[in-house]
Computed example of a mutant assay.
Amino acid sequence: MTQIINCRGTLVDLVQPRIMGIMNITPDSFFERSRFYTTDEILTQTEKMLLAGATFLDLGGHSTRPGASPVSQDEEMRRVVPAVEQILARFPEALISIDTFRASVAKACVEAGAVMINDVSGGLLDTQMYKTVASFGNVPYVLMHMRGTIETMTQMTQYDNLVLDILDDLQQKVAQLRALNQRDIILDLGFGFAKNIEQNYKLLNHIEDFAVMNLPMLVGVSRKSMIWRKLNIPASEALNGTTALNTVSLLKGANILRVHDVKEAIEVVHLVEALLAK
């Protein structure tokens, strides 16, 4: 498996699992405490996450929770591009991922200094995304599995064979990206996107099956409904469940955990590494 990714000249070795901290520059993301608006809030949270040990910061200006209100391209740009610039002015060493399904937003953020593209649509929602990402040359692309749109994905959970269907879809998209000479691709199985709760857990239990693709794996289950609905609790109380599923993910080979709570995720990485070293 490819273990080293090139983030615009910064090489990151994924042999050691890495943590990606979530920063939502939105008013309506499902977990309220992940929303940041002002420059002071953004910089304070950046410092907190970096000090806690985050390798990447994932900035998003368009909520992708089920039922989220559409955000225009201009509004998404207005939210995220200044945030990238503000963070790098204060923390030039920060490795920023931009969470967007729009090629134009991805391009503007990379030009502002972002080093990774995290596309929840896997290229479905913008036909220019693959060409745009590949044109950068050394910007890793997080390829997530999804069906439909943000508005319709919850109605698109019918699969002939969940694992094989997703594997086939991702393999086809990787082939398209490779044809454009995209070098670094990171897989994301898309927990919560066009999957119901039972399917999310089945997929989590089959993470190892995707090792056949020989690509790094990002897992993002942090405080998602697959946890809090199962436990009948609010998202604000889902940290313990998140920690449990992050532990499982690492044991099954995850390379990057995308989380709201960096300190706790770092602790999981240390404990799992200690376990696997014995």
Rank of each mutant, 00 (worst) to 15 (best):
A244D: 02
K263Q: 13
K252N: 13
H260Y: 01
S236G: 13
T243W: 13
G253M: 08
S236V: 11
E237N: 15
T243V: 15
E264W: 07
N240P: 15
E237Y: 11
T247E: 01
A235G: 07
T242A: 03
A244S: 13
R258W: 05
V268Q: 02
L250E: 05
T247R: 08
T247C: 10
L251V: 07
E264R: 12
E237V: 12
I256W: 09
N240V: 15
V268S: 04
K263H: 15
G253E: 08
H260C: 02
L239M: 13
V259R: 02
L250T: 08
V262M: 08
A265H: 07
H260L: 02
L257D: 03
I256N: 04
A244K: 11
A238D: 00
V262K: 08
I256M: 03
A254D: 06
D261V: 03
H260S: 05
D261F: 02
I266V: 11
T242K: 05
G241R: 01
V268P: 00
T247V: 05
A254W: 06
L239C: 09
A254F: 07
L251F: 14
L251K: 14
G241Y: 05
A238E: 05
L257N: 01
N255K: 10
G241K: 02
I266Y: 06
V248N: 09
G253P: 08
S236Q: 14
S249L: 04
V248A: 08
L245H: 08
R258L: 02
A244F: 12
V262W: 04
K252W: 08
N240R: 15
A235M: 12
S236R: 14
D261K: 05
N246G: 04
K263V: 06
V248R: 13
R258F: 04
T243G: 10
L251W: 14
L251Y: 14
N255F: 14
S236W: 11
L239D: 00
E264P: 11
S249C: 08
S249F: 06
L257H: 00
E237W: 13
